[in-house]
Design a protein around this nucleic acid. Structure first.
Length: 282
DNA sequence: GGCTTATCCTGGGCGC
DNA sequence: TGCGCCCAGGATAAGC
């Protein structure tokens, strides 16, 4: 499940390998994978552009190209952006871009939730993808407890749900939300707006630590994610609660529990994350 | 406006 | 072995 560390890992891989290369031709194998413009226009317009830079905003990969144009990619659930030397057939290949270097940039996506947008000259990424403008602060750009206090103010929803809301905080997904809450000792059902500044300061630090650690390890590979070179991440071996339902906590030996919060699986340790100001119901 | 729930999609796991 | 059901989850729309 690509979250900020996985997307950052892909961006770094692309930045190190595709700058200066150019797109020779494009083939869209699944029309749903193209967010903008139409498939026909995408295939006609994108070829000929040179890759100039790669950046990231939240979970969006932003590829800056020649002529003030760009490509935005969201991997969603199962998307993979792969740079391959040989044109090997991929089972879930949705979009393929042949590059002048002879390599191919492939977009694989088993569940077809991922999207690629072309950003035409004169337009900004946010003009084509309005949700980009609504994203919350970047966790790795100086996130503080005060900043969290501002975005969570008066919110009654569970802190777990609030952390997943990209308008409040960009880039955090299910895995790292669970891990950050565990390291902060905060119960996932705690009302977001009820947390004290001291708790939020610790949460801000743990979010940064967890994300930084995950980036160092190349992301998490539970099922679908690999880097742009097809290399699996290693964070899953570092997880303390995510995917450890029924296992003993490594700190207090209580049993890790899994509950549904906002329709998402949430993992926590009842010993290390005691209930306080917990919302009614799940 | 805030919050919850349903929907999209498909492979894998599980029970029968 | 094969079938059917459920689950995973990011983003968004719909509904309360």
């Amino acid at each position: 499940m690509p979250e900020l560390p996985e997307v950052e890992t892909v961006c770094r891989g692309l930045r190190a390998n595709i700058l200066g290369d150019a797109i020779k031709s494009v083939e869209v194998l699944r029309k749903e994978s193209i967010g903008y413009p139409s498939v026909g226009e995408f295939e006609r317009t994108v070829p000929g552009h040179t890759f100039e830079d790669v950046s990231r905003r939240g979970k969006y990969i932003l590829i800056h190209m020649s002529g003030q144009s760009g490509l935005a990619v969201h991997l969603r659930m199962s998307g993979r952006l792969l740079l391959v030397e040989k044109k090997k057939p991929a089972k879930f290949l949705r979009v393929r871009m042949q590059l002048k270097s002879g390599r191919e940039l492939q977009f694989e996506d088993m569940r077809v939730f991922g999207r690629i947008w072309y950003i035409p000259p004169g337009k900004t990424f946010a003009e084509i993808i309005p949700t980009l403008a609504e994203l919350g602060p970047e966790p790795l750009e100086g996130l503080t407890g005060v900043a969290l206090q501002e975005v969570f103010a008066r919110r009654k929803q569970a802190i777990k749900s609030a952390l997943l809301d990209q308008r409040l905080l960009a880039g955090v997904g299910n895995i790292y939300a669970d891990e950050s809450l565990f390291h902060s000792g905060i119960h996932p059902l705690s009302a977001a707006g009820s947390l004290k500044l001291k708790e939020l300061e610790r949460l801000a630090e743990e979010v940064k630590k967890v994300l930084t650690r995950a980036i160092e390890l190349g992301g998490t590979t539970f099922s679908d994610f690999t880097s742009s070179q097809g290399v699996n991440g290693n964070y899953q071996h570092d997880a303390w609660v995510y995917g450890r339902t029924g296992s003993d906590c490594r700190i207090c030996t209580a049993t890790i529990v899994r509950v549904k919060i906002g329709g998402r699986s949430s993992h926590y340790c009842p010993g290390c994350q005691p209930k306080r100001r917990v919302r009614k119901g799940i």
